[in-house]
Amino acid sequence: MWIFSLLWPFGTFIASIRNYKYRNFVIASLGIAIMYALCMQVTATDTFNADITRNLRNAADSQYKTWGYIFLEKDFLTSIIGKLACYVSDDLRFLGVIFEILNTWMFLKCIQIIENKINSYGLSMSPLWITVLVLAFSFWEINSLRFALATTFYVWCALEYFMNGNNHFKYYSILSPFIHFGYFIVVPSLLIYDWLKDRTKLVWIIFAVSFFLTTPAVSLYINNLSQEYMSESVAKNVDGYASERGLEGMAERYAEGARTGNLNRAISRSMVDIRNYTVMACVGLLSLLCYRSKNKNEEMVRIMNYLLLFYSFSNVANSNSQGVRFYATAALLAVCFFIVFIAKSQMVNVLSIAQKRLCIIGCIIVSIATLMNLYIGRDAANLGSVMFNNIIFRAISIII
């Protein structure tokens, strides 16, 4: 499998899904992740300046910072990794490979947790389920480097907590904001879950109220709190997004993108919104159906309560334009749980027909959104090279 993955990573990856075995899937996933990193465009041009270029440059610049200065940064974990990697090389593409491998490793831990849970029901992971999970995670996409790493890490912690009953990971999730500072808004959803897991009506009230907290006024209030109680570096970063000036700047930035973007951009943006709000609706309806079911499944009710709590904090985060990204995390978490519910329902009657359809709809919408993004080609990589190239030739061509 190692040899095949080196010769043709993409083909090996597809084969590992079709004939799924965890060990082979691990090798193939690492192969395609490295191939993707080698094909990323890491040099900014007049027509291309993706976030990944800036993120990798910041990681490379960590080599010039003292350890004391790094630990004073608001989200220092990527700087730590960057500084350690730079002891070997500060080449941006090399750093991209390191971060791709790290994100893929956490993704594989998530897959292993889900597979073990499905195996506990006497079933095996099907090619369809693994395909949906691959598309939901999009583990190769690290354009928004810090947010991508923080998302995979947070999901890993949540799955360890809910599916393996490992309580320590609930507290490990607190490290997420140190990867991407924005996660400080949604981390509380997992920390307060134990108190609210059986208080469904209260969770519904919190969820309903959260829609009234998506206004710019909330963003300005968060900014005022950061200015008063947080460090200067943190307050400055929050101000760039949550202040009146920051909100106006982000609004103009997106307006400019809408004016200059083509039809593909408009379709892609619309599909993101469809994914966000359709999956949210599926979670809300599932929560209602689970709560009113005669044979109430306590596990499902509690997990739906957690997802609604996460959506509630995501709504608050959405008072700032960048907060909408947490809806994607919520959709990813939902798909992970949906697949486990669907698998369990094949052995035990835990889903009604309506509940199963809602789970399936959520999985389909998330998968379509990812496929559309791949087709439109918003990722900072040459997808043709990813599919038809190999690691050895690509690495040699870069060195030469």
Rank of each mutant, 00 (worst) to 15 (best):
A331R: 05
L307V: 00
Y241H: 12
Y87V: 14
M347P: 02
G362H: 09
M347H: 04
I274C: 01
S385N: 15
Y22R: 11
G323V: 10
A369H: 14
L175W: 08
V155S: 13
L247Q: 10
V42W: 08
L77S: 11
Y64T: 10
E232M: 13
A44Y: 06
C110Q: 09
Y36R: 06
A37N: 06
F48H: 13
H180I: 15
G257W: 00
P188F: 02
I360M: 09
A317D: 03
S79N: 13
S79G: 11
I222A: 12
A28M: 08
I368A: 00
C359V: 05
V218Y: 08
V155A: 10
A380P: 14
K296D: 03
A330H: 03
S16E: 03
A59V: 11
S293F: 10
Y64M: 07
A158I: 14
R93T: 07
W204M: 09
S29P: 11
N318M: 12
I392H: 01
K294A: 08
C39N: 09
G249F: 10
L92H: 04
V279P: 03
D61W: 02
I303Y: 03
L145V: 13
L220K: 04
S319K: 06
G182H: 10
K356H: 12
A369W: 13
S62L: 04
S176I: 09
M304K: 11
T214H: 07
E298V: 12
Y277V: 09
M372K: 12
G377F: 05
R23I: 02
I391W: 08
M347S: 11
A380F: 05
T12K: 13
A136C: 11
Y20H: 04
A381C: 07
I111H: 01
A60E: 02
A334C: 08
H168N: 10
S319R: 07
I32H: 06
A331E: 02
R146I: 13
S210P: 06
T78A: 15
Y306D: 04
K344G: 07
N58D: 14
V134Q: 00
V186W: 08
N55H: 15
V283L: 05
F313D: 05
A331D: 12
S79M: 13
I118D: 02
L285V: 15
F107E: 00
M304S: 11
A266N: 09
R146A: 12
F337P: 01
L333P: 00
N55P: 04
K170W: 02
M40R: 09
S226K: 08
K21E: 00
A381L: 07
T214G: 10
A44L: 11
N167A: 15
V88H: 13
A150R: 09
V134W: 05
A217P: 04
F13C: 00
N320Y: 12
A85W: 03
V279R: 06
